[in-house]
Design a protein around this nucleic acid. Structure first.
Length: 672
RNA sequence: GCCGCCUUAGCUCAGUCGGUAGAGCGUCUCACUCGUAAUGAGAAGGUCAUCAGUUCGAUUCUGAUAGGCGGCUCCA
């Protein structure tokens, strides 16, 4: 019997995997155990570091405020959090004092010591921690319920607890408490219910951690539960890695579409209009129009029919569709056209409610139903840039990514059951190709399947459709992630998750089967044998909402759009006034070729103009002075500051036009 | 919707321990005409988010409302 400290003398090893289970280095192993080291920089090691940092935070909070009760404190991406029940919420000043308190704990070099306890012992020791008692209780319930099927208590407990975040406390097969021991006195200074494992010593946290933000969070993630105060932090093995993380955060903040939207004069949210209701300024309007125009062109080529439908409707349409039953909370309240009454109080005119539409599909169903349909008409693909309005809760609106009024690139495809698979395949390929044209080329797929508690339609139909979607997804060769229970009530879906330039993922396109609406709208077509059949309906959107896709592209490109999307594609900058007319002629030729080009004739000095247009992220600056004019040439300056001087006019024009036609990204002389 | 924070010029932000405000950038005017990221000078621009309350007096203190930010919950 040896422990991990003897097995692994390398100081970067912070824990070990014994027969697949993560254990503290203090644990003992036998010669027959399979043991692997876990280093601080590995994924497991980082989680352990961050989880230990969360414990130190909790200890610091209880040092400062002994009345604070503990929630949970798991590691998360890049960091950790810990939830507390405190009488007064934390303030930004508390962050500083808590970091000081954490520093003291870290410098003490406290050891984390694991101790197995019974439920009764845990309850006695943690009698003052009601949330911990609740977790112990949950574990007790699940332990008791696992009989007969041979399953171990661990996974069953996890399942009962639901979220991984809670299982870090009590998710193991045994109930354990971690004591924080002062190495000089041997005294236990703090303890917490925890599955572990932990770092050998708090000193290892000191290299790169920081508390980052304060928030409120519902206990166990449910709106019905009380809110706890959450403190988020980040932790890294070294100070350099912490700084690199902070630099990444700053980079992401610079790309924030809300910031760029204001800086580049693309859009705004006038307070007078209302929360979540954007207006697009001329420059944003150009980007949006280019996005839409290209989409229209490709949809036309792919056999879609373009339709238009109104923004409001009488309530009966959404009664038929079921939206008023399922989603009325998310809809703007109705416009009530008042009933009229005569002098005797008798109704002389029935009142009617009109609603803003939250979805386009019911309207498209009416178009399908407007005449008798034959199998020869299918698949019928109805496309619309449809503006919809959703009453998003006040706390969730966020820039262009979560708005109350948006335009979807929405299409509904009606097809036969036999044609479903082929249609799904071609739709997915169409979607992926088009996304790539906008510059998003790295994605994976997510398959959302039935929520057993919330669905309509038969199990057979769901199974078949889910199977079909899975086959189509697999055939694409892309990475496929399953999202069990994530489907809408009316049918399974595939969604395309795209990774942007700095590695964040966004849910983009969705392809969704619907068993509900064809039934509710009693949609039918006549089959080749003369029988009446129900079509299969596919909802699909590429952008999801144009506003959101606009935001994603803005952040993906950090505002430096590819030339075809750039609001201003070319700016001419004369070295001095006298070269203006020469540049005007070149810019006019570009304008005639459909290029968005202008000459900067302002009084600013050339250097200032370069600065202005570089900040505005104009892809091509054409600079002209004596030398260029004498040679019939121009000098290019690109967004990254690189130059290409003395380019003959014809060549310059054809390079610019080619960059637009190929939808190339141009940031520097080396185009990508 | 919930918790916390925030709202001062077009933008970014100072400031007023309660006596109605200031900078930089931008805008406008004038001068300058210059070869690769800020020429100089001058001027205009604010009901200190809105509405109530306390006060002799409120941008400042209180409350409500609207909008925003960070999270939570939600996202057909």
């Amino acid at each position: 019997m040896v422990d991990g400290f003897e097995l692994f003398t390398d100081r970067s090893v912070v824990a070990m995997r014994v027969n697949g289970e993560l254990r503290d280095l203090a644990a003992t192993v036998t010669p027959t155990d399979a043991v692997e080291p876990v280093t601080l920089s590995s994924a497991d090691g980082l989680n352990i570091l961050r989880h230990s940092a969360a414990h130190v935070l909790a200890q610091a909070v209880q040092n400062v405020n002994p009345a604070a009760r503990l929630g949970i404190g798991p590691p998360v991406t890049d960091g950790f959090y810990y939830d507390f029940d405190v009488a007064e919420p934390f303030t930004p000043d508390d962050i500083k004092s808590l970091e000081k308190a954490m520093d003291r704990i870290i410098r003490q070099g406290q050891r984390f010591v694991r101790r197995v306890v019974t439920a009764e012992e845990a309850r006695a020791e943690l009698a003052a921690e009601p949330y911990k008692l609740e977790l112990i209780g949950l574990k007790g319930v699940s332990t008791g319920s696992t009989t007969g099927d041979g399953s171990t208590t661990g996974p069953a407990a996890d399942a009962e607890l639901g979220a991984d975040n809670e299982s870090v406390e009590v998710g193991g097969t045994e109930l354990t408490i971690y004591d924080n021991v002062d190495p000089r006195t041997g005294e236990t200074v703090w303890k917490d219910l925890c599955r572990g494992p932990h770092l050998p010593n708090t000193r290892m946290i000191g290299n790169g951690y920081s508390l980052t933000r304060l928030a409120a969070a519902y206990w166990r993630g449910s709106e019905k539960n009380p809110q706890l105060q959450r403190i988020y932090g980040t932790a890294w093995p070294t100070k350099d890695e912490l700084r690199a993380y902070q630099a990444r955060q700053e980079e992401a903040a610079k790309r924030d579409h809300r910031k760029l939207g204001a800086e580049l004069d693309l859009f705004s949210f006038p307070e007078e209009i209302g929360s979540g209701l954007p207006v697009f300024h001329p420059k944003g309007g150009i980007i949006r129009q280019e996005m839409e125009n290209y989409s229209r062109k490709r949809h036309a080529e792919a056999g879609y029919d373009f339709v238009y439908t109104p923004h409001i409707t009488k309530s009966n349409l959404f009664e038929t569709s079921g939206h008023l039953d399922w989603y009325s909370d998310g809809m703007f309240p109705p416009m009530k056209l008042d009933a009229e009454y005569d002098a005797d109080g008798h109704m002389t005119r029935q009142g009617v409610d009109y609603y803003l539409k939250p979805m386009n599909c019911p309207f498209h169903n009416l178009i399908f139903r407007s005449s008798g349909r034959s199998y020869r008409d299918l698949p019928m693909r109805l496309f619309e840039f449809g503006s919809v309005y959703r009453y998003e809760k006040s706390g969730v609106v966020h820039g262009l990514t979560r708005v109350r009024g948006m335009t979807q690139d929405d299409a509904h495809i009606y097809t036969t059951k036999e044609g479903m698979k082929e249609e799904l395949t071609s739709t997915l390929n169409f979607v992926l190709k088009l996304l790539a044209d906008y510059g998003l080329e790295d994605y994976y797929l997510e398959l959302s399947t039935k929520d057993p508690k919330k669905f309509v339609g038969s199990d057979e139909a769901w199974d078949e459709a889910t199977q079909t979607l899975a086959e189509v997804a697999e055939a694409s060769g892309l990475e496929l992630v399953s999202d069990p229970g994530g489907a809408a009530f009316y049918g399974p879906k595939i969604s395309v998750q795209a990774r942007d330039a700095i590695g964040r993922t966004w849910q983009m396109s969705t392809i969704q089967l619907d068993f509900n609406l064809p039934e509710r709208f009693d949609l039918e077509y006549t089959a080749s044998d003369g029988s009446r059949q129900r079509p299969v309906m596919i909802h699909r959107a590429l952008f999801g909402s144009i506003e959101r896709f606009f935001a994603v592209l803005t952040e993906h490109y950090a505002g430096a759009f590819p030339v075809w999307l750039s609001p201003v594609q070319v700016v001419g900058i004369p070295v001095s006034e006298q070269y203006g007319p020469y540049l005007d002629e070149i810019i006019e030729r570009l304008t005639e070729a459909g290029v968005r080009a202008q000459v900067d004739h302002s009084d600013d000095r050339m250097q200032k103009k370069i600065r202005n247009h570089t900040k505005a992220k104009v892809p091509f600056q054409l600079i002209v002075g004596e030398e260029d004019q004498a040679n019939g040439a121009v000098s290019f300056r690109f967004r990254d500051g690189s130059q290409d001087n003395g380019v003959p006019i014809d060549e310059a024009i054809s390079r610019i036009v080619a960059a637009i036609e190929t939808r190339a990204q141009v940031t520097g002389q080396g185009q990508s």
